[in-house]
C-alpha cells in the first residue's frame, strides 16, 4: 500500500528527472525542491496557524485564563477551547499540515534510498517498481553514483591534508542549526514553546549530522537541499528570525522600539492587533486573593 501510493510514484519521478538531467546528485536536489514546492501551501498554512497561536499566547484573556485555572486542568482546557472558537483558531492547525507533510518527506527519503540500489537484491526490487511506459530501465539503470567528489551510495568523506573529513555532514549540521535557530520565536526565556524550540535547535543538528555522517551521501544531499530550501522558504515567508543568528539585529530592533534608532515601518496584519482588553471581572492579577471573611462559628458556652 505505502509502496504503491508513495514509494513507487516518487521513485519513478526521481528516475524520470534523472533521465532528463543524467546526474543523480542533481536529480536528488531537483526532486527534493519539487516535493518541497508541492508541500509549500501546507507549510504556509502551518506558519499561519503557528503565528495565530503565538499571537493568542500574548492575548491578555489567554494569560488570564492560564493564571485563573492553573490548578484546574479540565476547566483550563474548556476555557481555552472557548477562546479558540471565539478567535477562529484551530488548535491542530499547526500540527495537521506537518502530519500531512511527514509521509511525503519520508517517501522522498525512501525513494532516494531505493533509487540508489547498491546490491543485486536492491536492484531487482527497484526494477520491479519501475513504470515501463515511463522509464526505460535497461537504458537508465544503474544510476551514475558519482557526484562531485562523492560516491552517492557511500557515506561522504573528503581527503584534505591527509585527513578524511565528513564535509557534507558538517554542512548538514550547520544548516540544520541555522534552520532551527531561524524558526525560534523571539519570546521570553520562560516561554515553554521557546524552550522546546531551543532544545530542538541543539539536538536536531546532532541527529541530522549523525545521519549524514553514517548514511549514503545521496541522502546527505537530500538533507542539505531540504535545509537550504527551508531556510529560503522561511526568509521569503518572513518567518526567519535573523536576530537569533545575528544578535546585533536584535539590538537594532530594541533601539528602534525604544526610540533610539530609526523608526521602522512594519506591516501588521489585522489578526496581529490585540483585541482591546476587557474590563477584568475581578482584580486578581498581581494581588493577593481576597478571601471573603467567614463568620467564626460561635462557641457554645459550656455550662
Amino acid at each position: 500500500m505505502w509502496e504503491t501510493i508513495i514509494i513507487q510514484p516518487f521513485t519513478n519521478v526521481l528516475l524520470l528527472i534523472n533521465s532528463l538531467v543524467h546526474n543523480f546528485g542533481v536529480s536528488i536536489i531537483l526532486f527534493t525542491i519539487l516535493i518541497r514546492l508541492l508541500t509549500h501551501p501546507l507549510t504556509v498554512q502551518q506558519f499561519k496557524a503557528t503565528k495565530a497561536m503565538q499571537g493568542l499566547q500574548e492575548d491578555p484573556r489567554y494569560k488570564k485564563i492560564q493564571e485563573k485555572y492553573k490548578n484546574d486542568k479540565e476547566k483550563l482546557s474548556q476555557e481555552q477551547m472557548k477562546l479558540y472558537q471565539e478567535k477562529g483558531i484551530k488548535p491542530l492547525g499547526s500540527c495537521l499540515p506537518t502530519l500531512i507533510q511527514l509521509p511525503l518527506i519520508l517517501g522522498l527519503y525512501q525513494s532516494v534510498t531505493k533509487a540508489m540500489a547498491s546490491s543485486p537484491f536492491e536492484f531487482f526490487q527497484l526494477e520491479k517498481i519501475i513504470y515501463p511506459k515511463l522509464i526505460n530501465a535497461a537504458e537508465l539503470l544503474p544510476l551514475e553514483h558519482q557526484f562531485l567528489w562523492m560516491d552517492l551510495g557511500q557515506p561522504e568523506r573528503i581527503n584534505l591534508f591527509g585527513l578524511s573529513i565528513p564535509l557534507l555532514a558538517i554542512i548538514v549540521v550547520a544548516t540544520t542549526f541555522l534552520q532551527s535557530k531561524l524558526l525560534q520565536p523571539p519570546t521570553s526565556a520562560n516561554d515553554q514553546s521557546a524552550m522546546l524550540t531551543k532544545s530542538m535547535s541543539i539536538y536536531m543538528p546532532i541527529l541530522m549530522g549523525f545521519m549524514a555522517y553514517s548514511l549514503a551521501s545521496g541522502l546527505a544531499i537530500y538533507f542539505l537541499t531540504s535545509n537550504v530550501f527551508g531556510i529560503i522558504q522561511y526568509a521569503i515567508l518572513g518567518r526567519a528570525n535573523w536576530s537569533n543568528i545575528f544578535p546585533f539585529l536584535k539590538k537594532k530592533d530594541e533601539d528602534t522600539k525604544t526610540g533610539k534608532g530609526k523608526k521602522e515601518i512594519v506591516d501588521v496584519e489585522p489578526e496581529d492587533i490585540p483585541e482591546p482588553e476587557e474590563e477584568p471581572e475581578e482584580k486578581t492579577v498581581n494581588m493577593k486573593p481576597v478571601m471573603p471573611k467567614k463568620k467564626r462559628p460561635q462557641r457554645k458556652k459550656r455550662k
Binding site: S119, L196, A216
Partner: peptide, 28 residues
C-alpha cells in the same frame, strides 16, 4: 518537559546508532 525531550532525543540517537551499519545495503 525539558528532561523528557532530552531523553527522547538521546534515545533516538542511540537507536539510530545501533541500527546503522556502515553502508546500508540489503542483500541475499
Amino acid at each position: 518537559t525539558y528532561v523528557l525531550l532530552i531523553t527522547v532525543f538521546i534515545g533516538i540517537t542511540l537507536l539510530l546508532s545501533a541500527c546503522v551499519p556502515g553502508p546500508r545495503v540489503t542483500g541475499s
